[in-house]
């Protein structure tokens, strides 16, 4: 299990961080924290394309607009 914290970052950085994590290890589940809709959509779209199942969970307790994208195989 890994957590990639992209809070406060906007595209393309969250997508770059996800891509890098995926390159390192494309099997171990990961959670990606994002806090803007564009990054959420971008990471979800890219992850699905790479064969991940994506579940978006709202995490307002971690900051305004924070969403945890749970990426599983």
């Amino acid at each position: 299990m890994r957590t990639i914290d992209c809070r406060g970052l906007s595209c393309p950085q969250p997508l770059l961080m996800f891509t890098e994590a995926h390159k390192k290890d494309s099997e171990t589940p990961m959670d990606v924290l994002v806090d803007n809709p564009a990054s959420m959509e971008n990471v979800s779209r890219a992850a699905r394309k790479k064969g991940w199942k994506v579940e978006a969970v709202s995490c307002e307790d971690m900051g305004s607009g924070v969403v945890r994208l749970e990426l599983r195989k």
């Binding site: 595209c11 393309p12 997508l15 770059l16 891509t19 890219a46």
Partner: peptide, 9 residues
Amino acid sequence: GALRDLFLF
């Protein structure tokens, strides 16, 4: 972003 995402990803 259109060209950037094309080049990057």
